[in-house]
């Protein structure tokens, strides 16, 4: 009888839906006295995607960096909750991944070693199968053991997606998601973006009309 109760509890826990929300409130940022971001607020729930758009220099990248904790806002808060519980800023790092032009991978290492490095830091057990599957997913099959320095910029961009997906993030931040990619690469990225917003959260910064079509909400940023 006891084992049946235990089984039922475990089954319930496994299938219980996790409610996730990212709440961004009144973000402000200025550089050298020039206001870049002013009163940026939005919220995004599980299963949704938000596009941040605005002219060049409007602060899209700055906002993404603030949301990821790479830069500090002058004012405002970023709060991530799971089932109503606030995730502390230092733990938030474990819930998201970022792909952006300013984030590079290790050129001296191979694609496999780069992904294995993140697997080691994120405590992913027996990561080889996942690494090869992600490498194939981004269209780099057969190039897993080549050093990244031998990759083209498009291939590096694809590898950044595999790197970001290693930890199966709750939130995927993308800055210029389709830059440097060919037609096939763009299709693969759209597949990744659609899959991410199905059960999780997707936030991306872009000015591309095609990318914007994937967003449920569009946040216009203009200083």
């Amino acid at each position: 009888m006891n084992w049946m109760i235990t089984f039922c509890i475990l089954h319930e826990l496994k299938h219980r839906k996790v409610i996730m929300q990212l709440l961004v409130q009144n973000i402000e940022k200025a550089f050298s006295g020039k206001q870049i971001l002013k009163n940026i607020s939005f919220e995004i729930n599980k299963g949704e995607s938000v596009a941040l758009t605005g002219h060049n220099g409007s602060g899209k990248t700055t906002l993404i960096r603030i949301l990821c904790g790479l830069s500090r806002a002058d004012k405002g808060t970023v709060r991530f909750t799971q089932n109503g519980n606030i995730i502390e800023p230092e733990m938030f790092k474990n819930h998201f991944s970022l792909v952006g032009p300013y984030l590079q991978l290790y050129d001296e290492l191979t694609a496999f070693e780069n992904l294995n490095f993140v697997a080691g830091l994120k405590s992913i057990k027996e990561p080889s199968a996942k690494i090869f599957s992600l490498i194939a997913q981004v269209g780099l099959k057969g190039r897993a053991h080549d050093p990244v320095k031998a990759y083209s910029s498009g291939m590096k961009q694809r590898l950044k997606y595999a790197f970001a997906l290693m930890s199966t993030p709750d939130i995927l931040f993308l800055d210029e998601p389709t830059s440097n990619l060919d037609k096939d690469g763009v299709a693969k990225v759209y597949e990744i973006m659609k899959k991410q917003k199905e059960g999780k959260i997707l936030i991306f910064a872009t000015n591309d009309e095609q990318d914007l079509a994937l967003a449920d909400k569009v946040v216009q940023i203009d200083a």
Binding site: C68, L70, E90, K93, S97, L98, Y102, L103, Q104, L105, Y106, D107, V118, L121, K122, F163, S167
Partner: peptide, 16 residues
């Protein structure tokens, strides 16, 4: 120099 500092910042804790 290789712009990997931010990458490292996002995947590992400062003490590590």
């Amino acid at each position: 120099e290789a712009n990997t500092a931010d990458t490292l910042k996002l995947i590992a804790g400062p003490t590590d």
